[in-house]
Nucleic acid binder design. Structure first.
Lengths: 253, 253
DNA sequence: GGATTTATCGTCACCTTGACAATAACTCGG
DNA sequence: CCGAGTTATTGTCAAGGTGACGATAAATCC
């Protein structure tokens, strides 16, 4: 009699389920210096030693997917807590993506304000922000199928900005309309008319909430500080929030 | 010395990755009799014996996710080939969704024309179409976390109709504007003005293509038959197609 | 043949958007 | 302190899309 905690998976005439290593990867995006940045680590072990890769790792027994994604992020950047909006992107594999064998990976998308990355201290890898454009241009090559995942992540991010308030996830708690616009411009890779953007952002009910405070010290006229309105703020981790309706469409050509 | 084909996953100081059974589930949707239907099987084995569930099963060694989803669909319905648009929905678990232990499941979404289901012949389960509304109303209870998955699938389907041409995936190769409208009405659960829908559907460049043929025999004036335009047709399985721009938004209240 | 049914074309008021003018309110360099 | 420069914000206007709904076309049903 073998000892098998999963005997229950083998009722009459059913084959035992195959078991796969399951990984989580995180496409962490942020915006600063007017450009969209992605968090990448330099692999110090084979395979793809020396190559840049998405932060990630294997799901541990007893972990859920989001838990594992948050843990990997924390381990490889030194942040104490997930600093923005984390959502599942999609699953890849298990075939043909890891030379060591079949691995299923569940990719996640993090939209966060710029947060400091402790590349020192993490034992295994250097983490740093890289311009997303350099990856797409082929200037930077990623390990595994991470370029494909990044491509999907960028498309998801672009479309999220259209119909959800998640652009604000790139900003801090309080931000100006111009800062929010800079996010849209960086993610979409286009320029937006400041006046029309201002009208749409402030005119959409349930999107922005005026804090009553203003910026000071910057060049030019002070700007009003906004925060995400309560209706648009993510409720305790769960549901991606309601809709920007009608959407704020990115220019198509 | 143990025999372990995945030794490569254990470089210095890294723990061996946990391995999970990986399942695929399929939320297959179709529209007929003016209502949105979902394909469900009656479970003949524990757990949840006798309960309705999404068709699905474990990923076999050497399979990819979509492959496995297509195979399960074929096994449990008798169809020879995936009859519509199949895409990944998202992954659930691995914790707390199967009483036998941790199982990761990758849910898929199938949007298909009504196809006949061979409930006889499949050895393990009865498959049949059920009104999606009955599940949401609580009249039908599903096994595992399948109600949650169904909820996510319906939301995805609703939003896909807004900005993608995939509503046509519910229709056959050729269809009338009214048939397409019936799809939208069933999925969204709303009535749409036939005249405005007609204007939008036929007026959107790259969406519909007039076949030149007409319906005959039905009550009322004959309708023109359309097909999905080349630009909107899915190219050889891969990319979900371009955008319905501006979108065809569902009425929000 | 007239009633009914369904498809399709038009009209009109309203709203949103893109382009862009005009001010407002600050910093900066002298 | 002053004008120049910079950024924020408020408007204006025309074009295009949408919702509501009238009118007509072309079949089936009795």
């Amino acid at each position: 009699m073998t000892i098998n905690p999963y005997d229950g998976f083998m009722p009459e005439s059913h084959p035992a389920p195959a078991r796969f290593p399951v990984a989580v990867d995180v496409v962490a995006l942020t915006v600063f210096d007017g450009a969209l940045k992605i968090l990448l680590i330099t692999r110090l072990i084979e395979p793809f030693r020396g190559r840049l890769a998405l932060p990630g790792g294997f799901v541990l027994p007893g972990e859920d997917l989001v838990t594992a994604a948050g843990r990997e992020l924390a381990e490889e950047t030194g942040v104490g807590q997930v600093p923005g909006h984390l959502e599942q992107l999609g699953s890849y594999g298990p075939r043909g993506r890891d030379p060591r064998g079949d691995v299923l990976t569940v990719a996640h998308l993090l939209l966060a304000p710029n947060f400091p990355v402790l590349s020192a201290g993490s034992d295994a890898e250097h983490a740093a922000w890289y311009p997303a454009g350099q990856v797409l241009d082929g200037e930077l090559q990623l390990a595994f199928d991470h370029e494909r995942i990044l491509g999907d992540a960028l498309e998801r991010a672009k479309s999220k900005l259209e119909y959800s308030p998640l652009g604000a996830a790139f900003c801090g708690d309080e931000f100006t309309v111009a800062q929010l616009r800079a996010v849209y411009e960086a993610v979409w890779g286009t320029r937006l008319d400041p006046r029309n953007f201002h009208r749409k952002a402030t005119g959409t009910p349930g999107f922005l909430e005026d804090t009553g405070r203003m910026t000071t010290g910057d060049a030019g006229r002070p700007a009003a500080l906004f925060r995400l309105a309560g209706a648009a703020r993510p409720a305790a981790g769960q549901p991606a929030r309601a809709v920007l309706n009608p959407p704020l469409m990115r220019p198509r050509d």
